[in-house]
Simulated assay, not measured.
Amino acid sequence: MRISGLNNQRVRQHNRRTIMTLVWRLKRLSKSQLAQHTGLSIPAVSKIIDELVTDGKLSHSSENLSNRGMNSGHYQIPDDGPLILCMNVSPTSIESQLIDARMLPVGDFSWTDVNAQTPEALLKAIENLWQQQRKRWPGQRINLALGIHGQVDTATGVSQTMPQAPWKKPVQIKYLLEEKLGITVRVDNDCVMLALAEKWQNPQNRDDFCVINVDYGIGSSFVINGQVYRGTLNGSGQIGHTIFDRDGVACACGRYGCLETVASLSALKKQARVWLKSQPGSLSLDPDALTSLQLLDAWRHGDANIQRWAEQAANAIGLTLYNLLNILNINQIWFYGRSCAFGEPWLQTINRQIGFTPFDQGDAGRTRQTEIAFGGLTRQQQIIGIGYLFVEDALEAG
């Protein structure tokens, strides 16, 4: 095994990347602020940012960020780079937000209903939204960042499985769109989109955290030591396919009793439909046309059955997370997805099941209880998260 040390060149690269990371995250920083955040001296910071400005990585503004003392303006990402159209893509809907080179929103967040029965129809819907933006911004390069439901091969940009789709074959989303539109396309899983959104836009995050999306299915993404962990086969985060009940019902993955089959929003709808068919006229709901919104509305109005099923789902999630925390010792978890509309009672049930993990006790008896909460980012911020694939690529490239 070979372990490399850090020569002067690597130290310089590390410091450049640290400064760029800070500017991407905080948007505008003065020399003194950069020195304060990095622990480097003002002369060292000055040398690095002068190089970055010369390389076109940073731009300087004479606007002062403070009225105290001498101030030489601030530094930020140049605004002359390509725009990025961020999308959260499923066969039934596409959420999109255009952002500029600094990862700041341009225009309004939008939701588009689609009914894609084929991969070609879904690609066409993506292209149509991109073409609409190109008409608004003629002559401007607009790249694509796509968060895709299901498993994605990030190296090739292939959607390997999309659970809600009528088709079962892989789709070469990145290649086909790049060939058709002549732009750069980045593709990853929709839970990675949420993890990137949290990592780059929530200053309260720790270096290790997890996001869990409880919606149609149950997905998750882990950030470990500040980096999204995907696994060599891009299979990390399949918490929804953890076996919860060995004698349970069949899951779409081919196994039985996965967490998704008892705790996802689609599982609760299935449970409600079965009960409604056995109780004609109950709740004045059509079991064959039951929607997630109707299910949540019935819960809010105190339907005892739905409240009980939601609590059982939360118990299952909590027990699964207890095992996860004992393996990974991640002490910060953010929940997203439509199931979050079940509110604090649902979250408290999850917390009760987790309790204290054996690792919650810190040094000298100091307790660091696992932090479990609803994610606080807006839907617009969540969609912007997938755009940070371009930032991480740029940082990796130096």
Rank of each mutant, 00 (worst) to 15 (best):
I173S: 12
A289G: 05
Q353N: 13
I243M: 12
L325A: 11
G248P: 00
C253E: 11
K199P: 00
I19D: 05
F342A: 13
L176V: 09
T156E: 14
R28Y: 01
Y75A: 08
T357G: 12
F222A: 15
N202L: 08
P163S: 07
V185K: 03
L328K: 07
S30V: 06
V89P: 07
C251K: 04
G337M: 06
Q380G: 01
G385T: 01
W299S: 15
V214G: 03
Q361K: 14
S282E: 06
T112P: 02
D208N: 15
N225L: 10
L377Y: 00
P203I: 12
D208I: 03
G182V: 11
A125K: 05
N351P: 01
A289Q: 15
G337T: 04
L144P: 00
N8R: 12
W130S: 11
L85A: 07
G398E: 15
E311N: 07
P43V: 06
T320N: 12
L29C: 12
G182Q: 14
D80L: 07
Q76T: 10
N128H: 03
T261C: 07
L122E: 09
S96D: 14
R206S: 15
T92G: 07
W275C: 07
E63G: 13
Q348R: 13
P163R: 05
M103P: 00
K168P: 01
F359K: 11
E198G: 05
Q36K: 10
A252E: 11
D247Y: 05
D50P: 00
I239S: 01
Q307A: 10
Q172F: 05
A252K: 10
P105G: 02
I239E: 03
F209A: 06
P91W: 07
L129V: 08
A165Y: 00
E127D: 09
R28Q: 12
I77M: 13
Q160L: 15
T320D: 09
G375D: 06
Y175A: 15
I239Q: 12
F335A: 03
L319F: 02
E396T: 13
R338K: 14
T291K: 07
A197G: 11
G107R: 11
G318C: 13
W24A: 13
Q131G: 03
G231Q: 04
H60E: 13
L293S: 11
A314G: 08
V152I: 12
S32Y: 05
A310F: 01
C258R: 06
E311P: 00
G337V: 06
L34Q: 03
L285P: 01
L377E: 09
V228D: 09
L98H: 04
F342C: 07
N205R: 15
A125V: 07
S221L: 11
R230C: 08
Q369S: 14
I239R: 01
V89S: 13
M193E: 07
N64M: 13
P82G: 03
L293T: 14
S339V: 12
T156I: 10
M20A: 12
M162K: 04
L233A: 14
L83V: 02
S284E: 12
N323I: 04
T118G: 10
A314T: 02
P280G: 04
A252R: 12
C340M: 08
N128Y: 01
L29V: 04
H301V: 10
N331M: 04
N225W: 00
F356E: 14
L319H: 09
G56W: 01
S93A: 15
D393S: 06
Q294I: 02
Q294Y: 02
R338Q: 13
N331D: 12
G235K: 08
